[in-house]
């Protein structure tokens, strides 16, 4: 149960930081997503984010910053195994399932539905 509280708190805090940036600066959501992914990559590279993931679990991996974490983790693991080539193959291999899922589901959704006016 304690685990779930950490998931909630860490996931919540990550979202709140984004909300504050969005409301107080002129950055658009796209900017924030980019910022978060790059932050995820960097924080993982210097070893901070894996520690947060250990406590927060899904709270740290479900937000888009976790996508950066997976990219960096995949890259570093691949570099360990394959050397310099791994720097190019590791990140995308690690996240391939997510990207493919997003593309396929996105495509299917666009086939089966139309954009609707807001009320």
């Amino acid at each position: 149960m304690v685990d779930y509280i950490w998931v909630f708190v860490i996931g919540g805090i990550i979202c709140v930081i984004a909300q504050i940036i969005m409301d107080t600066t002129k950055l658009l959501p796209a900017h924030i997503l980019v910022l978060y992914v790059v932050m995820g990559v960097l924080l993982t590279a210097i070893g901070i984010y894996p520690k947060i993931v250990k406590i927060g679990q899904a709270g740290a991996t479900v937000p888009i910053i976790g996508f950066g974490y997976s990219l960096a983790k995949g890259t570093m693991e691949a570099v360990d195994k394959e050397g310099i080539i791994g720097a190019f193959s590791g990140g995308i291999s690690m996240t391939a399932s997510g990207i493919s899922a997003a593309v396929v589901f996105g495509y299917l959704a666009s086939i089966f539905s139309h954009s609707k006016s807001k009320k």
């Binding site: 969005m22 959501p29 954009s115 609707k116 006016s117 807001k118």
Partner: peptide, 18 residues
């Protein structure tokens, strides 16, 4: 028209932006 203007000037209708 709300929906044609949204797409031209802002973001797609379904995107969950505040």
């Amino acid at each position: 028209h709300f929906s044609s203007a949204e797409r031209q000037y802002r973001s797609p209708l379904e995107s969950g932006v505040q």
